[in-house]
Simulated assay, not measured.
Amino acid sequence: MVKLLSRGVPIQQAKRILEDDTVCDVIKIGGLVRNKDRFVRRRQRLLGPQGATLKALELLTGCYMLVQGNTVCVIGSYAGLKSVRKVVTDCMNNIHPIYNIKTLMVKRELMKNPELANQSWDRFLPKFKKVNVKRKKVAKKQKTPYTPFPPPPPESKVDKSLTSGEYFLGEKEKEKVRREAKSKKQKEIKFQREEKRQKLFEPPKEFKVTTDKIQQPNQEVDIIALKKKMKKNKLGNYKKISN
C-alpha cells in the first residue's frame, strides 16, 4: 500500500490492496524502448485520446491502471493483471492496444456461453496480419574522395581587389569605377523593361484559312447551266401548288 501511494495512486484505490482477492503489479516500461521520443509516443497509446483506451482496458480487465513516468501501476485480480501486463508489453513492442482490446472483448462474450467452456477459442479470436508500411527512401549522400590537403580558403575583399587592380587606384578613381558599374547595371535594367513594354504592342500572328470549297474569283461560271436549274425549280414549285 505504501509502495502504491509513493507512486501517486490515490488512497481510495490503494486501500483495495488490503482485501484478500485484490493484488497489485508495478510494470516497469522504462527499459523496454531506448529512444525517448518513441517511448513517449507508445506510452501515449496506452492512454488513448482523452483516456479512452485506458478506460476500455479498465472495463474489460476489471483493474485500476495508473500510467505515470516509467511505470504502470495495476490493481485488480490475478487474471486481470496478467492480461494488462500482456497489453502493456505488446504496446511497448509496437503492437497497438486496440488489437488486444478486440480479443478481450471477444473473450468476454465467449465466457458468457457455458457450452464453449471446454472448447478452444482460437477459431473465434480475430487474427491480425502484419503489414509492412512503405517508408520514404532517404537519399544517401555521395562520399567525396578523401584528400589530405585542406580546401583553399575563400578569397577576401583585399584579394579580389588585388586581382582586379582596384587596390592600387585612388579614392576618386574607385568612385568613378563604382559609378560606371552602377550606370551600366541601370542601363541593362532599363533595356529589359523597354523590351517587355514593346512586346505588349506587337500585333498577333494572323492564321491563313485555306479551304477548297471557296470559289476563286478568277474561275468562270457556267451561266446557261444555272438558268436551266432555276427553270426546273420554278416548274417543280408550280406543280406542287396546282396539285
Rank of each mutant, 00 (worst) to 15 (best):
V2R: 10
R7D: 14
V9W: 03
V9H: 03
Q13F: 07
I17C: 08
V26N: 00
G30K: 04
K36A: 07
K36V: 07
K36P: 07
D37L: 04
R42Y: 01
R42P: 06
R43S: 12
R43M: 08
Q44G: 09
R45T: 02
L47Q: 04
L47D: 09
G48K: 02
G51N: 11
G51M: 09
A52H: 15
L54S: 05
E58V: 03
Y64Q: 00
Q68P: 02
I75V: 09
Y78S: 01
G80E: 12
G80A: 04
G80S: 05
L81R: 00
L81V: 03
S83N: 04
V84T: 07
R85I: 05
N94G: 06
H96Y: 10
N100L: 07
K112V: 10
N113S: 13
N113I: 01
E115W: 11
A117R: 10
S120P: 03
L125D: 03
L125A: 00
P126S: 13
K127N: 04
K130I: 08
N132E: 13
N132C: 14
R135P: 06
K137D: 08
A139K: 05
K141S: 06
K143C: 12
P145E: 08
Y146W: 15
L162N: 00
E171M: 05
K172G: 00
E173V: 05
E173K: 01
E175K: 10
V177H: 09
R178L: 13
E180V: 08
K182L: 14
K184I: 08
K185L: 15
E188A: 09
Q192R: 05
E194K: 01
R197A: 15
K199E: 09
P204K: 15
P204E: 14
K205S: 04
V209F: 14
Q215C: 06
Q215R: 14
P217A: 03
Q219C: 04
V221Q: 06
D222M: 01
K227T: 01
M230A: 03
K231M: 12
N233K: 14
N233I: 15
G236M: 15
N237I: 13
Y238A: 15
K239T: 13
K240V: 10
I241G: 05
I241M: 11
S242Q: 12
N243P: 00
